[in-house]
Amino acid sequence: MTSPPDPFDQIRERISGYILSESTFRGEISFAVGAESIVECCSLLKNTLGFTYLVDVTVVDYLTVKFPRYEVVYLLHRFGENYEENLRIRLKVALEQDDPAIDSVTPVWSGANWLEREAYDMFGITFRGHPDPRRILMPEDYDQFPLRKDFDVRDRESSKRSFERALDEGLE
C-alpha cells in the first residue's frame, strides 16, 4: 500500500517546525508536539495534509514514571484519495503537573468536544477555549479526577457527598 515516497516523510517535512521528537513502536508513529502549537499543528494537519478524522483524544498520567507528568494523546486518521490510503499518526503533548492546560482542538474537529470533556473529567486537564467545559461522566459537583494515578480509590468521601446532595435535592 505504501508507495515509494514514504507518506510520513512528507508529513514530517510539513510539520517539522512543530515536532519535538519522534518515536515508533509496532509500526505506529508518534510525534511529540509542543503544547503552545497544538492547534496550529492540528489545523495544518487537517487542512493541508488531509487528516480530517480525529480518532481519539486521551491522556496518560505518568505521575513518577516520567517528567512532565501528563501526556495528552491525539490520534489522527487520513482517509486519502478514494478512502484508500488510511494513514494514522499520533501526536503527544507533555503537560506540567501544576495546573495542566492546553488549547482545545474543537475549532479544528468538532468531534473533540466530548473526548476533551472526558479528558477533563478524568484527569483535570483544562482545555482552553472549549465550548462546553463541563464534566461528562462523573456528577457535575464531583471534585476529584479519578483516572489520575494519585487518586485514592478507597476514599469514598467525595462520591458520598455527591450522593447525599443528590438525595437531598430529590427530597425537596
Binding site: F25, R26, E28, S30, V55, D56, T58, V60, L75, R88
Partner: peptide, 20 residues
C-alpha cells in the same frame, strides 16, 4: 514497554484500545 492503539470495526463503529 511501549504503547499501542489497536482498533477493530465493531458493529457500532471503531472500537479502539490504547494500551500503555
Amino acid at each position: 514497554p511501549g504503547e499501542i492503539y489497536h482498533a477493530v470495526e465493531n458493529p457500532k463503529g471503531e472500537l479502539g484500545y490504547y494500551i500503555v
